[in-house]
């Protein structure tokens, strides 16, 4: 059982003093919540669990432990491991100060509609897990469990194509309705491993050309800007869409850009290895220029 292995590994690392903090998941308030936990004493390892509700991407928390004494251990699923690569490539996390414990993941489940305990095997997979193409961690120092087989992913861009098929006015209406519902909570930004700036341009006070107002146009500016900033760096972990309290289709913008990047500049996936360069940070002499 993975949970047992987690606890053993964490206890070992903490007792030997190899790490000072272990980041993992523990059971939350409800049976269908498993929330992040930060353990620094060997006695606390029994809080760790791994079940089908451990959806949180723990990679981002490494940013809080950058200046910690000693190393930090973190459990990473497939998506989380790419998140760590993303942070290391952006110089936000020092790979030598992190101990990665990989867990191959067969997908996390959605929370049930009602609170009483039920058979979790009947619950559907989270949308982001249905579309996952990297269930096995691409980087780790220790692997718990056997690699899972890559699942047959439904057409990655079918959602994007559905929107592309609408008329211009229909598209505009669709996105305006999305932007008008956004409450600018910035949960998408906070959960995203690619959004790792020290101070987000939307939080800055000096940049008076970006607004914090919660109206349709400023929300649109935020959505499009975030998409362009993450372009070529998105690891498709889907956390942004999962954490959005308004249920907005954020991944459909990120996927649109991914589709365009694949079409125009060749297939590329971010965060798979530390050597790859983001698409907008490089160029080829014979890049297409169809409309120019």
């Amino acid at each position: 059982m993975i949970t047992e292995k987690m606890r053993t590994a964490a206890k070992d690392l903490l007792e030997k003093g190899e790490v000072t903090t272990v980041i993992g998941w523990e059971k939350g308030t409800f049976w269908y919540n498993s929330t992040p936990v930060f353990i620094s004493k060997p006695e606390e390892v029994d809080r760790l669990v791994f079940d089908e509700f451990c959806a949180n991407n723990l990679a981002k928390y490494l940013m809080d432990y950058r200046n910690a004494e000693g190393k930090t251990a973190v459990f990473v699923k497939g998506c989380d491991a790419r998140g760590v690569n993303r942070l290391v490539q952006d110089y936000q996390v020092n790979r030598d100060k992190v101990f990665l414990i990989g867990i191959p993941c067969s997908g996390m489940k959605e929370a049930p509609k009602t609170a009483e305990k039920q058979d979790s095997s009947k619950l559907p997979l989270l949308k982001k897990c249905q579309e996952c193409a990297t269930p096995n961690p691409v980087v780790y120092d220790l692997l718990l469990g056997d690699p899972v087989s890559e699942r047959q992913v439904p057409d990655r861009f079918s959602g994007v194509e559905a929107i592309e098929g609408k008329t211009a006015d229909e598209k505009y209406a669709y996105w305006q309705s999305m932007h008008s519902q956004c409450i600018r909570c910035y949960a998408c930004r906070n959960a995203c491993p690619a959004c790792n700036c020290r101070e987000c341009c939307f939080d800055a006070n000096g940049l008076n050309w970006l607004g914090k107002q919660n109206n349709v146009q400023e929300n649109q500016m935020f959505a499009m800007t975030r998409a362009m900033h993450v372009a070529g760096r998105c690891i498709e972990c889907g956390e942004c869409e999962r954490v959005c309290p308004m249920g907005l289709p954020i991944m459909e913008i990120n996927r649109k850009i991914l589709k365009d990047i694949n079409e125009l500049f060749g297939p590329q996936d971010a965060g798979m290895s530390l050597e790859d360069k983001p698409a907008l940070g490089q160029f080829k002499l014979d890049d297409p220029e169809k409309f120019m």
Binding site: I163, E164, A168, D169, E170, K171, Y172, A173, Y174, W175, Q220, M224, A227, M228, A231, I253, K256, I257, D260, I261, L264, F265, A279, L280, F283, L285, D287, P288, E289, K290, F291, M292
Partner: peptide, 20 residues
Amino acid sequence: YFTRRRFLLMQRLLEYMGID
């Protein structure tokens, strides 16, 4: 060269948002 890449994406994104 960077302009070219960036604005290829930008144009498609604007079109996706419903701008002609």
